[in-house]
């Protein structure tokens, strides 16, 4: 639906968390996506690649796990350098 702005939200979260957790590169993002979240997985992956270009998460792997019955989109964990 609004995958581009959600991808921007993920990047923002990564950058904010970097300030408290002290990392400078993110190599993978683990995300759970609810079946009723009205978010298209393919589109989210595509948008994530686009918005992270030139950022600390450039080239990071986005691993999306489906969450049946949920309407959440939950960022679980980052793999960082």
């Amino acid at each position: 639906m609004h995958e581009l702005s959600l991808a921007e939200g993920v990047l923002q979260l990564i950058e904010d968390t970097a300030r408290t957790q002290g990392y400078s590169r993110v190599t993978a993002v683990f995300l759970e996506l609810g079946e009723h979240a009205a978010v298209e997985r393919e589109s989210l992956s595509f948008c994530f690649d686009v918005v992270t270009r030139g950022s600390m998460a450039e080239g990071a792997r986005l691993e999306i796990t489906d969450l049946p019955g949920s309407s959440e989109m939950r960022v679980k964990e980052l793999e960082v350098d």
Binding site: L13, R74, V75, K76, E77, V80
Partner: peptide, 8 residues
């Protein structure tokens, strides 16, 4: 690994 747990 950095744990976040946030529902956007």
């Amino acid at each position: 690994r950095v744990s976040i747990e946030q529902n956007l």
